[in-house]
Simulated scan of single mutants.
Amino acid sequence: MTAAELVVDGVVLTAGARRLVEDVSLTARPGEVIGLVGPNGSGKSSLLRAVYRVLRPAAGQVRVDGADTWSLPARRLARTVAAVVQETGADIDLTVREVVAMGRTPHKRLLSGDTAEDAAVIASALTAVDAVGLADRSFGLLSGGERQRVLIARALAQRPALLVLDEPTNHLDIRHQLDVLGALRRLTATVLVALHDLNLAAYYCDRLYVLCEGRVTASGPPAEILTPRLLAEVYGVASEVVLHPRTGAPQVTFLPGSRPTS
């Protein structure tokens, strides 16, 4: 698995007359973990859809290693970019192992069977998300958190150069949130991930892009941009931010009932 450079250059996304994302630019260097944070409706999911080629920009470009993603053949794109999205149904009549094996499809010829390499990659992906014990179970009978881990394993099995994830820790308990984000942190691939939990984003991401009303409000290392002033402007709440004494990462505490001061 190699790592790709992602460049989002002046992207505008629309839905009818409404603008979802306005002139957003973003760069993820090879091997970086880049976090998208911001309130609901800020444009995070829309921007990710443009990156994994579901929502075509009205203006601007998304480039992976210099190539416009919309110009890439579908098979090459599937070998390069993998996505874990929020809207995935549970009505898949396959075992967990079979679902994860789907991630190997871009690397195989039509109707070819699994090789020893495929089996090793699938086993590694299941191990990374603590799903080995689920391998023979029906995907449709899993809990929401279990399904989420399996879908992440499928993306890992794809061995992409760029991995895009939309709220991958949704439905996961604390242990599996840490396991999944730790696995992403260890990848050689470039990772673009939308997260709601600012403390997880601060610990696991190299840099953050803060979106608000479809625009990038701030970007940079977590310790530089996660400030009470920015959180008040973007989220409308008061907070305290300190560096954790053991991890060195910024730790955000929101203050319920308090209003931000100017």
Rank of each mutant, 00 (worst) to 15 (best):
G113K: 09
V252I: 13
F139C: 01
L230Q: 06
P73A: 11
G60Y: 08
I122E: 08
A59I: 01
S45A: 08
V99G: 01
L47Y: 03
T169Y: 04
A155N: 06
V210P: 02
G60W: 06
G257L: 09
L55E: 08
F254V: 13
S138N: 03
L126N: 00
T69F: 05
G133T: 03
H176R: 14
S25P: 09
Y235E: 15
L184T: 04
T69H: 05
R49T: 04
V180E: 03
R207Y: 12
R97P: 02
R159A: 08
D114K: 00
I92Q: 02
L6V: 03
E32Y: 08
R185N: 08
A119H: 11
T69D: 09
D65E: 08
P106D: 12
G220E: 13
L111S: 07
G38V: 10
Q177D: 14
G89C: 02
A218V: 12
A183T: 03
L181F: 14
R137C: 11
F139W: 04
L187I: 09
L110G: 04
L178N: 00
S46L: 05
A189G: 08
V96L: 04
V100L: 00
R147E: 09
Q148S: 09
L231H: 04
S42Q: 07
E87C: 01
A58H: 04
V12C: 14
E167H: 01
R149P: 00
R53Y: 08
A3G: 14
A155D: 07
A17H: 15
K44E: 06
E32C: 09
V64S: 08
G103T: 11
L6K: 02
L111D: 11
E224A: 15
V164T: 02
L20T: 08
P30V: 05
T127Q: 10
P106T: 10
A249P: 02
L195R: 03
D23E: 12
I34L: 14
V100Y: 00
S258K: 15
V11A: 06
V21K: 02
T27N: 12
P245F: 14
V191A: 09
L165R: 00
L192T: 11
I225L: 15
R147Q: 14
P260L: 05
L141T: 15
R29P: 01
Y52N: 06
V21Q: 01
V252W: 10
A155W: 05
A15R: 15
Q148T: 01
T127R: 07
L36G: 00
E167W: 01
T217Y: 13
V180M: 06
D206S: 13
A153S: 06
N170L: 10
S46M: 06
P30I: 09
T247C: 06
A28I: 04
V81N: 07
T188A: 15
L200G: 03
L178Y: 11
G236Q: 12
Y209C: 04
L243E: 14
L163G: 07
E146T: 00
G38I: 07
V252M: 10
S262C: 10
L178A: 05
A101T: 03
